[in-house]
Design a binder for these strands. Structure first.
Lengths: 268, 268
DNA sequence: AACTAGTGTTTCGATTTGCGAAATGCTTAA
DNA sequence: TTAAGCATTTCGCAAATCGAAACACTAGTT
């Protein structure tokens, strides 16, 4: 799930970070499991984990080590770092009220796209767990860009070489039958997105889920991120997209961008 | 702000982690600044930072490195790890509706207390920035336990040696004139808290702010965390605490604890 | 247009540091 | 009591990190 680096300059810290990833993926682990997973001596894992623990990054429950709350602090820091990200909450709120569908704001990070906004629905309408008509993105979740509306919207606006590098790095793995897996076809799709000004995810990420994504632009910089509205295919028809969603999405994104230029404390 | 370890077994990873802390505290930094701050050669810092970057933990903006969104993912993981933490959101919501004051749920981590719940007020009543009558805790924020109602509530229920170790580790630094800084006096305060069943923060953390905290207990384990209600001193009088807040706080915490024993997937 | 001061990046040898195998100690279940 | 699982410690060798200095690049200044 989490990509390993190709040339980690410092091997020891990279090993510690790999352990963090492993502990995350396992949802907690003990020394023997980690040693097995990463083919390391138990004593080696021990020293790494103790170090991470002493520095406050892991918590311990009996013989199991877990991701510690310290990451919450750092995560919130990352999220509230740019003022631009603050506006995202407002925009998500607006769009949710207007569309009553799942709304997300994502940014590009290391060639993938990551959810930065808390789903507003989570708070406003406390849903049953059984409400399978709604897809809800957890904050901090990473997605491949080629299979999401927001990702395509961003890719279409990135400099050509950046886009190419990202496609090289992550490829075009299929999530569903609709996922565009052919590179040539995908580049053409990006041109369509660029012409239209917004991207459509037509069950390319999850079966039964459609979405519309639009990049949030800055002047003289790559887009700061992208907003998307998504829901079940039977509700998000082409007509609904064109007549209902795109206009209000456009309005929200423009207001977002206006606030960005007024504030300007967002670096390149 | 962030404590350094006393005996970090592996020096190289500990150095990387110290760099993360430093970047966080500065709100982004370049190599020269970091080298200066930690008294390291610029080339050394370079290799550490590149490693953190390659592994996806940092983002780069020109010459500045920043905490990356990957921490959001790990933070959310830490937060949603225990089912018990899920109930916290419900409880916070309930208590907020009932009291209309700031409500928080915190857990103990490495001898401090850290906010695990999103403030419900943030979403329900979108406040003006000028609403200085409300104190709002950001998720992931750490506090010293001796100066907060929740912290005292937890300390009062921890095994004696744990409590002593925590006080040794962090001391009793003064936040306000009301902060209890004398160890003997503080131990007596903990006994009062234990008798009463709840803790009061009487402007010990911030001037003008009072709060009530109650530990959320499990059977045969230290408390899972603590809930608190806090607000301006003129509203949170002794009468209001005893007659309004404590009963509803008690009710919410009991319901919380009931859900915990029903679920039981929370380790020690 | 040359200069300067600030970046990040690379090189390379000395030596500190992390590594693994095995032994130890501790707890829990049989 | 025994056995199996765990974390923890020890120690010598090999390897990876470190720092100083040189390099390359950019932006702002003279």
């Amino acid at each position: 799930m989490t990509g390993q680096p190709k040339n980690p300059t410092l091997k020891t810290p990279a090993r510690s970070l790999a352990l963090i990833d492993r502990i995350r993926d396992r949802g907690g682990a003990n020394l023997s499991q980690l040693a097995e997973d990463l083919s390391l001596a138990k004593s080696t894992v021990y020293k790494h984990v103790i170090t991470l623990y002493e520095c406050g990054y892991l918590v311990r429950e009996g013989d199991e080590y877990h991701i510690g709350p310290k990451f919450l602090d750092l995560g919130e820091h990352a999220r509230s770092r740019k003022v631009g990200y603050q506006f995202a909450d407002d925009a998500v709120r607006e769009l949710t009220d207007a569309t009553d569908e799942e709304v997300d704001f994502v940014i590009e990070d290391h060639g993938r796209v990551v959810t930065i906004s808390e789903s507003y629905h989570k708070w406003v309408k406390y849903p049953d767990k059984s409400d399978s008509n709604r897809y809800r993105a957890r904050m901090g979740t990473y997605y491949h860009m080629h299979a999401t509306a927001s990702g395509k919207a961003i890719l279409a606006e990135l400099p050509r070489d950046r886009t190419e590098a990202i496609l090289d790095r992550w490829g075009l793995p299929a999530n569903t039958d609709n996922t565009i897996t052919d590179r040539q076809a995908f580049v053409e799709e990006l041109e369509r997105v660029d012409d239209r000004g917004y991207a459509i995810d037509d069950e390319e990420f999850t079966d039964g889920l459609r979405g519309v994504g639009m990049a949030v632009d800055r002047t003289d910089s790559p887009p700061i991120g992208a907003m998307s509205v998504s829901g079940p295919s039977y509700r998000i028809t082409d007509e609904v997209i064109e007549q209902n969603i795109v206009p209000v999405l456009e309005r929200t994104v423009e207001s977002f961008e206006r606030r960005l230029v007024n504030d300007r404390s967002d670096g390149p």
